[in-house]
């Protein structure tokens, strides 16, 4: 069987298309590359959706944490503390239990116990908490002059937030946020490893790497393949975030740009 056939059979295996049975003997490198690559679809799915949705919540939580009103500030502080203070896999564990009990009382909520939705929610809340802390740190370090200048121009409320505070916060927090994005994609490997059950052998990249390591009893091939895929993914993330960073800093002189880029902020 040529490698193209293998790709046709297993390229979308993680989504349930193609061959139903996984390879069971005579494992080829091509099979390992294809299936582990196929599993990456899930890692990208979880990572991208959690990142985008988490970004919005993170902005809101960061603003709430910086607010004077304790009714806004306290819940935000607790949210960040609980999600940043506990290991992700414990969050997965409790979420799974919670979703199971929700499912038994409200059958409508059944999709929650599947990784595709349940794990996504956990990752979403988790990344929102970490990002909120980064953005909160950035908010605190917005130069006072910028805000005063906005006031002088007569900006207030929403327009001041949208045109001055928010862009500056993003610019300051971006390097750390890039790290957070990398960590989030790495964290997606935990979904099937210690969180949610795998259905019909449709798992993520780590699941398939684990499968091959178990069947061939040789961990030195599948895990480095997995590592290779993740290095590629990390490079893509760094490139995209670098573009955004350049865009955010486009008005600054060249030297100033690099200074902001290299200033270490929080990393997760």
């Amino acid at each position: 069987m040529s490698c193209w056939d293998t790709i046709a059979d297993y390229g979308l295996r993680s989504l349930g298309y193609g061959e139903r049975l996984l390879p069971r003997s005579d494992f080829t490198l091509c099979q390992q590359f294809t299936l582990i690559g196929s599993g990456m679809i899930w890692n990208i799915y979880f990572g991208t959706l959690a990142l985008v949705s988490g970004f919005i919540l993170a902005t809101a939580v960061a603003m709430a944490k910086a607010a004077h009103n304790p009714w806004l500030r306290k819940p935000a502080e607790w949210f960040v503390f609980v999600f940043r203070g506990s290991p992700l896999f414990i969050q997965f564990f409790f979420a799974y239990f919670l979703f199971l009990s929700l499912k038994s009382s409200y059958p409508v909520l059944a999709p929650l116990t599947a990784a595709a939705l349940g794990a996504l929610i956990v990752l979403f809340l988790n990344t929102a908490a970490y990002s909120a802390e980064i953005f909160f740190g950035a908010l605190q370090s917005i130069p006072k002059g910028d805000v005063e200048a906005a006031d002088a121009y007569g900006m207030a409320g929403w327009s001041r937030f949208r045109r001055v505070i928010w862009p500056t916060m993003l610019r300051l927090g971006w390097p750390a946020y890039t790290n957070e994005a990398i960590f989030l994609f790495h964290a997606t490997t935990l979904v099937f490893f210690s969180g949610f059950p795998t259905t019909k052998q449709q798992g993520d990249a780590l699941y398939y790497a684990n499968y091959f390591a178990d069947k061939t009893f040789n961990p030195f091939i599948p895990y480095p393949i997995l590592a290779g895929y993740f290095i590629l993914l990390t490079l893509v993330i760094i490139t995209i975030f670098g573009r955004v960073n350049a865009h955010l800093n486009r008005h600054l002189p060249q030297a100033g740009r690099s200074r902001i880029r290299l200033r270490p902020q929080l990393i997760r």
């Binding site: 990398i182 994609f185 790495h186 964290a187 490997t189 935990l190 490893f193 780590l206 790497a209 684990n210 390591a213 961990p219 030195f220 895990y223 480095p224 997995l226 590592a227 993740f230 290095i231 993914l233 990390t234 490079l235």
Partner: peptide
């Protein structure tokens, strides 16, 4: 720096100790 940062720690731990 870039290789080790690029790999999920869990993937590292699964084969690195034996290696």
């Amino acid at each position: 720096i870039s290789i080790v940062r690029g790999v999920p720690d869990i993937a590292f731990f699964l084969f690195f100790v034996i290696a």
